[in-house]
Write a protein that binds this DNA or RNA. Structure first.
Lengths: 335, 335
DNA sequence: CTGAAAGCGCTTACAG
DNA sequence: CTGAAAGCGCTTACAG
């Protein structure tokens, strides 16, 4: 910084001022300082800056690099944080790097709040952490852990899926449940509620499995095994199960969506593959990011007092795996 | 830090010493200091620490969060850096966050070297940057930009693919070329060289396209259009093209691998889907990370003088999309 | 082990 | 706009 000041012939304070876009320098000087900084390849030292300001202006973010849905959220965190004058500092969770490690690093950076995406921490550990620093948990149902929670509306998402299928004319809409999957309970509840709302309580059919492709394939076999009761549409609790299901149906000589319509959940990359072309419910990553940053900033500035729960609406992405049911089959379906 | 010192009844210097695992404190004191730090939830301020040490011990990493192959590399960068006493600081490149921005942030952190994964910078810009700080470019062919380059051996990868197919008994091995894709040139060259090596120069058949699924599907149509000349195996320059190809072949009533074997490249998530089950060439992310860190550290410590090029061997992952060619077809193939 | 001192590169506050 | 001073939270170096 001294070099830049010397080159322009001004004080270090003035250089600092210009580089922080503060008032107090003439337009001409401003220009000269900037040019000198560029020429010398000078950038203020972030560490020194944040040491002097008692406030780091950092939002720490811990996330699973391998999960594309979390990556989508992190991506929109950058602009959301910048809008409110904060910088994002990233700490990855990987198979070899625990959540604990990731969080400790963020604490070392003196993050003013930590946004925890897809956290696996127990409520107790989370509460202890939340006592030290404001925590915003994204995509996690646990309440009462002393932190703000932002999650997408799995209930409403499933409702959108059911509504879409009913509007197309389906009545026999089955559901593939993924046990042990985070958010699975909410999604199944959403399916059942929506079916009830459309007067289809008696058509509710839940097939259980885990959340893998194989489970989806298995489910197809079980559905096909029950003679005469094949639903005209199936909603899976995630895209992987949906894809396994489709694959088994095709192998069994059935057409999608002509014989069976299929809806997935997550709108993952697989859903978008042209030959899968899966109708899927997608969370709104940009909205979740904005809410997460808002919650963090409000808590830092002590605007919000008690933990907040924000439920962000989902979006139904209609693709080629859903269509109107076959008239013949609809008749056959109602004995 | 003062609080911890006061609590234990020692000097701040001693606390600092213990937390840095330096010699000079008794085992008992060490224990008491650690416990007090834990109880108070104290962590040394990273910024203050690196400000005082004139060396940040940071390795800056710029990468595309959305590219799973880059994420794989970053993941193994953490342990590789730690092994050599460095910390990793992440800066993401996204559709809304340019490489320039990501790099500037890393410079602000006073990274001692920057590992640039999948960089799109021109050679000129790269050279300018490399004058300011040691740069290691990963997965990029451009040499002579004043930085170290680590890339996987696309040439040898294709050679492994050809060898695998030839060993299975294939002779008519076609290639789907993806124009404009980084590394595409090297891969195509590898295919041609390997074919020549196995005395199959006359069987070389290159179908062009971009690197999308659609291009793979198109290629299938073109291959099917040429009567009697359908190869018994096809290598695609990436998994997406391979998957598009397989899909078109299946639609045309052909079986994979019974009628046509298919090999992809990248070993992406899609390749691993159970119903795709694609034999694919995969780069070795852990090896690339280790080489990247080694190059960075050597350059920081001025062990290496001139830019280094490290070519990391690939690994062939054999799955269900490749098999022996049909005897009948092999006869038909040689008129 | 302690204690007193200096300094990393900034920002802040203030008198001129 | 300048100039002199202080201080952020650490680490380093040194005399005891």
């Amino acid at each position: 910084m001294g070099d830049v000041a010397a080159r322009v012939g001004v004080s270090r304070q003035l250089v600092s001022l210009v580089l922080r876009d503060q008032p107090g320098a003439s337009v001409e000087t401003r220009e000269r300082v900037r040019r000198a900084a560029d020429e010398l390849g000078y950038r203020p030292d972030i560490a020194a800056r944040m040491l002097r300001r008692r406030t780091s202006q950092y939002l720490g973010v811990a996330f699973h690099m391998q999960h594309s849905s979390e990556v989508d959220i992190v991506e929109s965190l950058y602009p959301a944080a910048e809008l409110r004058g904060y910088s994002v500092v990233l700490s990855a969770m990987t198979p070899t790097r625990e959540e604990r490690t990731a969080v400790e690093e963020l604490l070392g950076y003196r993050s003013e709040a930590i946004i925890l995406i897809g956290s696996h921490m127990g409520a107790g550990a989370l509460r202890l952490l939340a006592d030290r620093v404001p925590i915003v948990a994204v995509g996690r149902a646990t309440l009462n852990a002393g932190c703000d929670v932002i999650r997408s509306d799995g209930d409403r998402g499933m409702s959108q899926a059911v509504e879409h299928l009913v509007t197309l004319g389906h009545r026999h809409v089955a559901y593939l449940h993924g046990s042990d999957m985070p958010g699975a309970g909410t999604r199944q509840r959403g399916y059942k509620r929506a079916m009830k709302r459309f007067g289809l309580a008696e058509q509710v059919l839940v097939v259980r499995g885990d959340y893998t492709e194989e489970a989806g394939a298995d489910a197809a076999h079980r559905l096909l095994g029950e003679q005469g009761s094949l639903p005209t549409a199936v909603i899976a609790c995630n895209d992987h199960m949906a894809v396994g299901l489709i694959h088994s149906l095709l192998r069994a000589g059935l057409a999608v969506p002509d014989d069976v319509s299929v809806v997935g959940y997550d709108d993952s990359r697989i859903a978008r593959l042209s030959y899968v072309d899966l109708t899927s419910v997608r969370q709104d990553p940009a909205a979740m990011s904005e809410e997460a940053v808002r919650a963090a900033v409000d808590r830092i500035s002590r605007v919000s007092e008690r933990p907040r729960l924000v439920v962000v609406p989902t979006i139904l992405v209609v693709r080629g795996s859903t269509g109107t049911p076959r008239p013949t089959e609809r008749v056959a379906m109602r004995p």
